[in-house]
Amino acid sequence: MNHIIALIKKDLLLEIRQQYTFYGILLYIASTIFVLYLAMNQPEEKVWNGLFWMIQLFICVNAVAKSFLQESQGRMLYFYTIAGARDFILSKLLFNAGLMIIMSLVSLLLFQLLMGNPLQNPIRFIGFVCLGGCSLSLVFTFLAAIAARARQGAALMAIMGFPLIIPQVLLLMKMSNTAFADIIQVGLWQIVLLLVALDVLVIALAVILFPFLWKD
């Protein structure tokens, strides 16, 4: 546990020291949503919802991709010897989940400002956005580890990730639809639980498989 906290602290410090990456992603979010605004103006709710989650997907690929690519081979070996692979992947998963939740909230704010506000139930939607950002980041963090191992960038991550992320995205769209109107979705909590279960599955797979990935 101490190792995990130390590793997250290290990631945080790096993020604070090299702020250009953080601002880079923020700028990425701002400019994508601005372009969307110019192209679509203020779309109806269904389109709004779809666009929002698609943008989350792209933000996630970009925000998470660097998490493994920035570490050099030597530094990896160092972490591996002092902390062990499991602690390392857990710290990355947690850190990226936090990062992605912040990014999702920022993009939600920008969406509200530029693309209009069709939300009837904003608090619920914010909850879904946090959960969604978390779910997306988990899958892409592990894929980033694979892509980094293959010495490839975000392109390979997208190829590998987009088919795999479909269940999460569909579940998210389905549950966030309920935040736009006073409709009652049958089994809403079942869907939320299903998504949480998928997240747990992804974490378990990552923890089991990561040591094999980094063994040299």
Partner: peptide
């Protein structure tokens, strides 16, 4: 695609195996 992006045999086999397992257990649910 992932397999062919690597040239080192040992690494290729291992990374591909990891992706295969990860993908399968997401695909079935």
């Amino acid at each position: 695609v992932l397999r062919n992006s690597m040239t080192d045999m040992d690494k290729r086999s291992r990374v591909a195996a990891v992706y295969n397992i990860f993908a399968y257990f997401i695909y079935i649910p």
